[in-house]
Amino acid sequence: MTTHLLTGAGSGIGAALAQRLLERGDDLVLMARDAGRARTLAERFPGASTLVGDLAEPGRLSWALSKQQLPRRIDSLIHVAGVVDLGLVADLSPSVWARQLAVNLMAPAELTRLLLPVLRVSRGQVLFVNSGAGLRAHAAWSAYAASKHGLKALADSLREEESENGVRVTSVYPGRTATPMQERVHQQEGAEYDPTRFIDPESVATSILTALDLPRDAQITDLSVRPGV
């Protein structure tokens, strides 16, 4: 049985992916920020198990996981969770920078570090759901784009470091996707939100499954997914 550990299953791309993985019979472990969120995820995705750890506090993840029963096998670690707050460099406070760097970059790095021993045993895969902002930055996107550029660097370094251990590393770069996060982005931009203009989360989930299911003689290292219209 294939076991996946997934962050960000509460909505959007993460929720679509979690449902697809469960429907095909895979084992699923979902990260939740607190016990209440864990109960909500367990009710929404029957059959999935949960772990509690707040990605906004990456320095406490080691302690949090040490108090819980980790799966004995993990075939893929999938980082989907993320936060975004737009603003001009002239206006962004250190706290806004710190939150996005913590959730989008430092937490994936720390969670990967903690789970690498298990991933090495299974010769598993680490998959980072990055963003188009991880490849290029625009006005008002500096903090978010910086965190995602850093996530690309993390993935690229990890891929070289872990190749001899058989651990595959993939970055997926979705363009604008019809998720609650995208709706919040439009609110911050002061723009009308029309989800039909953007990628369906199911399409991004399909691209992730393609990378996960690729035979072991190859790996997808970087995959950009853009709206079709």
Rank of each mutant, 00 (worst) to 15 (best):
M106C: 08
A191Q: 15
I74K: 13
R184N: 07
R176F: 04
L77V: 02
G87D: 04
F198Q: 01
E23R: 15
G59K: 12
R123A: 06
R33M: 08
A153R: 14
S142P: 13
I13D: 09
S157Y: 04
P58N: 15
V185P: 03
V172W: 08
R184C: 01
A155P: 05
T112H: 03
L88C: 08
H79G: 04
R99Y: 00
T170H: 10
A81N: 07
M106F: 04
G14T: 02
L6C: 13
S95T: 10
L22P: 13
S224V: 14
V96F: 00
T177Q: 13
T7A: 14
P227F: 06
S66Q: 05
R44E: 06
L30P: 08
E160Y: 00
S131F: 01
D26G: 11
R168T: 01
E160D: 08
L55V: 01
H79N: 11
L114S: 10
P58W: 04
G134S: 02
E202A: 06
K67M: 08
D26S: 15
L41C: 07
L119N: 09
T170Y: 08
G47L: 07
T3N: 15
H149W: 11
K152W: 08
A211S: 06
H79W: 01
L116H: 02
W97E: 02
Y144M: 09
T206D: 14
L5D: 12
N165W: 04
D54V: 06
E160G: 12
V83A: 15
D85H: 12
P201S: 08
V29D: 05
E110M: 14
T2E: 14
T112P: 04
A191E: 13
L51I: 03
V225H: 14
I199W: 04
Q188E: 06
L17W: 08
V167L: 05
P94M: 07
A42Q: 12
T177V: 13
V167E: 02
T7P: 15
E164D: 05
T179Q: 14
G228E: 10
A139L: 09
P180K: 12
A137T: 10
N165F: 07
S62G: 13
S203A: 02
V126S: 04
G59A: 04
M181C: 03
D156T: 07
T196M: 03
P180M: 09
V204Y: 02
P227G: 07
A178I: 07
R216E: 04
T7N: 15
R37H: 12
H138L: 09
D156Y: 00
G87S: 05
E110G: 11
A9L: 11
V225D: 14
T196V: 06
G36V: 03
L65G: 06
T50G: 11
A137S: 13
A191I: 09
L5M: 15
R226E: 07
A48D: 02
V172H: 13
L105A: 02
V129N: 11
Q68E: 06
A35I: 05
E57M: 12
L209M: 13
G190T: 02
R73F: 00
